[in-house]
Design a protein around this nucleic acid. Sequence first.
DNA 1: TAATCTTCCGTTAACGTACACGACAAAGAT
DNA 2: ATCTTTGTCGTGTACGTTAACGGAAGATTA
Lengths: 359, 359
Amino acid sequence: MKKDAALKIGIKDIAKHANVSIGTVDRVLHNRSEVSKTTREQVLQIIEELGYTPNLLAKSLASKIKYTIAVLIPDLGSNAYWEKPLQGIRAAALEIKKFNFELQIATFDYGNEKSFVEKANEILNSNPSGFIFAPVFYDSSLVLIEKCDQLQLPYVFIDVFIENCKNLAYFGQNSVQSGYLAASLMKYGIVNGGISHIYVVKPLNPSAPVYHLSLREKGFITYFSQVAASQVFIHSMDVDISSSTELVKSLDTIMESAQKPSGLFVANSRVHLVARYLEKNKIENVVLIGYDLLQENVEFLEKGIIQFLICQNPEEQGYKSVLSLFNHLFLKKTVDKFNYSPIDIIMKENIEYYTNFKI
Amino acid sequence: MKKDAALKIGIKDIAKHANVSIGTVDRVLHNRSEVSKTTREQVLQIIEELGYTPNLLAKSLASKIKYTIAVLIPDLGSNAYWEKPLQGIRAAALEIKKFNFELQIATFDYGNEKSFVEKANEILNSNPSGFIFAPVFYDSSLVLIEKCDQLQLPYVFIDVFIENCKNLAYFGQNSVQSGYLAASLMKYGIVNGGISHIYVVKPLNPSAPVYHLSLREKGFITYFSQVAASQVFIHSMDVDISSSTELVKSLDTIMESAQKPSGLFVANSRVHLVARYLEKNKIENVVLIGYDLLQENVEFLEKGIIQFLICQNPEEQGYKSVLSLFNHLFLKKTVDKFNYSPIDIIMKENIEYYTNFKI
DNA sequence: TAATCTTCCGTTAACGTACACGACAAAGAT
DNA sequence: ATCTTTGTCGTGTACGTTAACGGAAGATTA
C-alpha cells in the first residue's frame, strides 16, 4: 500500500509540513550543518513519514558537480579480449552522461607491471570519483588498493579478484567453475567406454600474469577427480607462445605419442592457435574447448574445429562495473560486492546471438 | 572532432545565435506553427550547426505528459514461464519511471482466446502510448494488429512473432535455431557408433497454441537430416497433458519397445514431467534436453536427470521490450525490428549464474 | 552599551525546457 | 478613420532541486 495519492511529494511539500523553508530541508537532506538538532529531527521525521524520494532529474539539473570514473585495463594490443569490456564501459558511460558522469580511460601493457603502476598513479593524481581496474599484478595492486582506501576512493575490480579488500564490487567470472564446466562438457562428448587422454594446454606469455589460467585448470582437473572417470587421463602442458615454434613442437609430440588426445582444453583465449594447428594437420575427432569470443576463435568455431567456447559476457561486465559506481555515487544505492557473470557455452549453432553486444 | 568546448549548448544558446527568443526556438523544435518560414529555417540551421541535443532531464522535468505502456501476456497460472519476462518488464518500468513512464499490465488465459481479445480491447480503450504483447493466437492477433495500425499505436511483439506487420520491434528467440542447437548437443553426446533412437516429445494442452513447439521440432529434425547421422532415428511423439496418465503411458510404450531411446528432446518447458518419469522409473543413460528455467526443471537439472536446458533470457526480453518503446516514444531513437535473444545452454555446472536476474 | 560574531534559517537565482499568455505589427473589415 | 483579425514573436512562470546570499536573533567581546 503506497500513499501516492498526492502524486509526487517534493522538497517543498516536506518544507510545508515541517513549517520550515526549502533551504532548511535541503540542508537536512545533505546533512550539512547550520541547522538545529530539533528542527533537523523534525524534518527528518516528516521525510520519513511522507516517504520522500528525491527527483533525480531535477537533482542533476540543478547540481553542478561532475563525476569522473577512471578505468584502468590492459591495452588491446597486449590482449584483444579487453576490447569487449571496453565496449560495455563505453555503453554505460553514454547512458549516465546525462547525470554529469564522464569517463577517463587508461590502459597498461599486460606484460609490463611498471606501466600498470605508472598509469594507476596518474589516475590517482587526477582525483576521480570512482575507479575501475583489473588488478592483474598482485603486488602492485595491493599497493594501489591501499592508496585507494586512504583516499576513500571507491574502486571496482573487473575480471580479476583480490581477496580481503574493501572494493565496492567485483565483476568477473568464477574461473574455477568455468573449468569445471568445460570438463563436464568434455566428458559428455568423449567418454563412451575406452581409454581417453585429455590435455590441458596453457599457451602463455612468460612475462604476463597467469592468474586465471591456473584456476580454470584447477576446476577442470577437479571435475575429473570427482566424477568417476577412471578411463580418463588428464595431462597438463605449458607452452611459451613468445617462441613461435614451441606450440607446434609440443603438439607434434603428443599427436605422435601413444597417448593421442581425445580432447584438448585450452585455458585461455589463445585456443585459436591450437585450432590452427589441428586444421593445418587435418586432425579430426579431437574435441577442442577454449575461451572467449575473439574473432579468430569464432572462425574456428564456425568451421567446426573448436567445439565449444566458454564465454563470460565481458561487455556486460564492463557495463555493470560502471553502473555499480553510478549506483553508489549518485543513487546512493548499496551494490552487491560479488557479481559473477554467467558461464556461457557457445557453439557453432548459437554463436550468432552472442557476437552483437546491445544493451 | 567534437566542438564541445563551450560545454553544453542549450535552447538559449541557439536563441542567441539566431537572434530570436527561446520561445521561438521551442516552437521550431516542436515544429508547431506560429513561426515564419524564414526564421524557422534559420533556427533549424543554427541547431544543425551547433549540434544541439536536448537535455532529457530538463525536458521531462518541464513536461507534463505521461506515457503509459500497456502489456498483455499470458497469466502465470496458465504458464509459469511468463513470470520471467514480467520481471524484466517491471525492472525496466522502474528505470523509466523518472521520465514519466508508467506500466499497465494485463494478462489473459493461455487456453482461452476470448480472454485475449477482451483484455486487448480494454487496453486499446484506455488509450496507451505503446503496447507490448505476445501474439499467441494468430487470428485474434491479426485483428488486434489491424486496430493498432489504425490507432497509430506502436506495438512490440514479445516471444511470438507474426510476419508482415508494422510492429515496432520483436523480442524473442529463433525457435528453429534453438531446436537445431538442441539436436547438435544431442548428437555430440550420443552418437558414437551404433544405432540410436531419439524421441521428440511434445507435451501439450489441446486448447493452447503450439506455435513454438512446431518450430523447435522442425529445427531439431532438420539438423539430423542435414548432418550425416545415418545411425540415428528420430521419432515424434505428441502427448496430451490435460490427461494425467497419457504421458506415462506413452513413455512406458517406448521404454518397453525395441527402439529404446538414447535421447529425449522435449520441445517446451514441461520437460520436468518427463524428468519425473525417468526418476521414478530409475531410467538412466538417457540424454534429456528441454526448455526454460522453471523451478521444477532446475531441480531435475541439478539432479542430473535433465542434461541440458535451452534458455532464452526471458527477463531480458521483457526488459528490452519496454526499453524499445521508451527509445521510440521518448528518445525518438530508431529501434531494431528483430531482436533475437541468445540461445543459452544451461547445464548443472552453470545454472547458478542464470537464475538471478539483475540488470 | 555598542560592536562583532555565531547560529540558525528564509529568500532567491539558477539548471534547461515546456507552454500559456500577451505584445505588436500588418492586413482586413466597418 | 477606427476596430478587429491574423500571423509572429517575446516574456513569464513552472518543473524540483542546489547553493549562494543575507537577515534576525542571541551570545560574546570591547
